[in-house]
Design a protein around this nucleic acid. Sequence first.
RNA 1: GCGCCCGUAGCUCAGCUGGAUAGAGCAAUUGACUUCUAAUCAAUAGGCCAGAGGUUCGAAUCCUCUCGGGCGUACCA
Length: 554
Amino acid sequence: MAQLKQLVAESFEALIKEEKLPSPQSETEYTVTPPVKEEFGDFTTNAAMVRAKDFRLPPRKIAELLAEKLQSDPLIKSVEVAGPGFLNIKMLDTYWHEILAEIVENKENLTALYTHTDKPLKILVEFVSANPTGPMHFGHGRGAVVGDVIANLLKAYGHDVTKEYYINDAGNQMENLAKTTMVRYKQAVEGNFDNNECPEGGYLGDYLKEIAQELLEEDGGYKEHDLDWFREKAKEKILVIIKNTLEEMGISFDNWYSELSLYEDGKLDRALDELKESGVLYEKEGALWMNTSDLGDEKDRVVVKSDGEKTYFASDIVYHKEKMERGFDLLVNIWGADHHGYINRLKAALELVGYDRECLKISLVKLVNLKKGGEALKMSKRGDSFITINDVMEEVGKDAARFTFLTRSADSNLDFDLDLAVSKSKENPVYYTQYAFARLNSLFVKAEENELTIPENFSVKDLEPLKEEEEISLIKELNYYPDVIKKAAEKYEPHLLTYYILELSAKLHKFYYNHKVISEAKEVSVARLLLLHAVHAVLKDGLNLLGVAAPERM
RNA sequence: GCGCCCGUAGCUCAGCUGGAUAGAGCAAUUGACUUCUAAUCAAUAGGCCAGAGGUUCGAAUCCUCUCGGGCGUACCA
């Protein structure tokens, strides 16, 4: 596309030089893109319309001049003026063969096609960071998958990416967790779990009962323990549960960062003291505040409460400062949309501790309403029953669950009906794509049985037999891949890749239905195999980035 | 009250840095397997893009207002 744009630009210059066009009054930007409908051609440009004012000429007049000029390019088959002044450009098959050849050459390492290396950044992607007070609920699952794929995309695009989970293991909630665990531990002796004995704000889910029982067994009978012991034990065991869940979802982290560790080595106090000295923090009514309201926040925020207790915000300031000190150029946080009110204060804080607020990119993921047969299900850890992500994974499977999250833009609300997801599982789009992949594998095996393989050294000439509509259409689709990765990575929108993968799968299925590979003349078979190997490679690469399995058979 | 996000086919959603007749999947109707995997393909039907103004050659897309839904607005975490 860049190449085409260059060509259009040159045509403009030539026309001006030949005095067929007057000198432009201005330079309006135009686009060269694939057209909305394939029958319009291979590329379309709005140049003539957009630049009508530049030349003070009617769009169609400019379009006709441009068309004539472009016609003479050796790779262009035809140029048509359409509608209000669009130029529809059709390329010769050779153009597409050359593009395919490049993809086939790189099929073992597609990253070469889309990795940009001019300015790789050191990026920290922090996501999930669910409190260690209970198993992850389904809403966390969406953020987890989206964060994971954003990290994959950024890495694929060429950045140096670290994935981190921030463990909120300090503060009041952990106190409640410890107290509840202690009660449950005592109750486990009798096996009678009365919720009324639990503290207010306690965690009533079954998981703590199970954990209490485990602790009792490990102790070999009831023993006295203090609250600290329960806090540590509960956290430890819940983190194991969380890690297992993440593993089941195919998610791993490079780093687990404990909030408590900020407290333990005095980092937090030291940092706060420094900020106080430098005048970033101020005292008022016995509390310590940060002046965030000058920097886009609605009001100033309390960092240390009048009772001396530090707020969650305090550790967040220091945590993010510390992230920057570790040498990252960009911090990407994936948050649930319910935290959006927190964005401005954290960006302000980052600025106040001396960094550019643009170093922090916060990507919001809307919460999920889990339903069963149209009825909403509870997802609060404090309630006595809630659906964990494991429950859902068991029912719908990892690939389907991931794919479901990834076929929606993160900022739209998502109703996830369990009954629907399960009943439709055979028709889930994920199988559509996986089936396309499996079909290719199976075909390659069959081809080999017929002694048909792709040549070690091939040339563009080997691709010449490719001229069917479905073949060229597949090549065009393959050609978009690097752009899709770029766009998805730059916009932090994984669903763009998902939709692309589905589109490519559709084109593959269509080709597969309409054309044979093995029974054709040898040159045709080989050319098609080369094409299909490219499709295979892109599907595999894309599914891999999405963290969805690419099965050899189905 | 104020702030942010969302409102597109019966359902679930794409499309939003303005472009041609608004797309896909599911559900509905119909057709295609003695053929490299029918978990597929093809066709039909389905829409005042929540509503009203505005900007322009051109608006689902940008601006303003209204109405619906979600979320946020703590010396909570």
